[in-house]
């Protein structure tokens, strides 16, 4: 972003990478896949790079409003300083915080989750898929993340993106507004679960594997971690892959 600012230009979008997308090895692959798509389509985008900080989501949900406010106000200063208008992010937690919680603190941007953005690119004919797609006819199931789904009512965009793969979309029993959480939200990602009969991601992993799909599509780096472990617990890590919708599109883009 600093480079765009220095040259006096402005990018079409700011890609908000998020902490998971920046540091988590598995999630970095999602970041790279999404950037590959942006490059192929020729979208002029920027990142904040080292100037990006955690949005504060996990701190706020754990109950630590001070740290949330510190992160949020800092980020807003940086974003407003660059006069950012449009933000795309591949993390539904960042998406929710930037979109719903920053305006009250003075951060007003058009915020789009990458599922919606990819759908827009596909609808506009900017993403062209290979003729003989390797997912054609294969069973894919889609896991609704809570922060894209119930929190923001986005259920159709990611499914439309998957349609472009010509795959057979099979739904889990609990899907869309009935979708079962992966177990990571509300800062659970950063601590051990409370005592129970099973883990939430094991329960969801089982349900996903039961669909018989060979691919579980996700839209969230935290769901990705949780579901990958859930599939492992079922002993299916070789036959069932958990992939982000950006990775699926990046594999098939022409």
């Amino acid at each position: 972003m600093a480079e765009y600012a220095a040259s006096g230009e402005s990018p079409e979008i700011l890609f908000w990478v998020g902490c998971a997308g920046s540091f988590d090895q598995r999630a970095q692959k999602i970041t790279k896949a999404f950037v590959t798509i942006l490059d192929k389509v020729g979208v002029r985008f920027a990142i904040l790079g080292k100037e990006e900080s955690c949005t504060g989501d996990p701190a706020r949900r754990a109950g630590n409003e001070f740290i949330f406010q510190m992160m949020a106000q800092n980020n807003i200063m940086v974003l407003n300083n660059y006069n950012v208008q449009k933000i795309v992010t591949a993390c539904p937690h960042c998406f929710n915080t930037l979109r719903n919680e920053y305006p009250q603190l003075g951060g007003n941007y058009e915020v789009i989750h990458h599922a919606t953005y990819l759908q827009q690119l596909i609808d506009a004919g900017k993403i062209k898929m290979k003729e003989e797609g390797s997912f054609k006819g294969r069973k894919i199931t889609y896991h609704d993340s809570c922060y894209l789904g119930r929190a923001n009512n986005i259920y159709e965009a990611p499914r439309k993106v998957l349609e472009a793969l010509d795959a057979e979309l099979v739904e889990m029993k609990r899907c869309k507004s009935n979708g079962l959480c992966c177990g990571a939200g509300g800062a659970q990602m950063f601590k051990e679960e409370e005592k129970g009969t099973t883990r939430i991601n094991f329960e969801r992993g089982r349900e996903a594997v039961e669909t018989g799909a060979s691919v579980i599509a996700s839209n969230c780096p935290f769901c990705m971690t949780m579901l990958t472990d859930g599939v492992k617990e079922q002993g299916k890590e070789d036959s069932v892959k958990v992939l982000d919708i950006a990775e699926l599109i990046a594999q098939q883009i022409e």
Binding site: G21, E52, P58, A62, F190
Partner: peptide, 28 residues
Amino acid sequence: QEWNMMFSNIENNMAPWKFSPDDRDKWA
């Protein structure tokens, strides 16, 4: 305890994990 660590990581490293902020764009 894990949450307290997460809080201090965010405060000090701007991320919930203990990574150096300088490595944020290493993937790029």
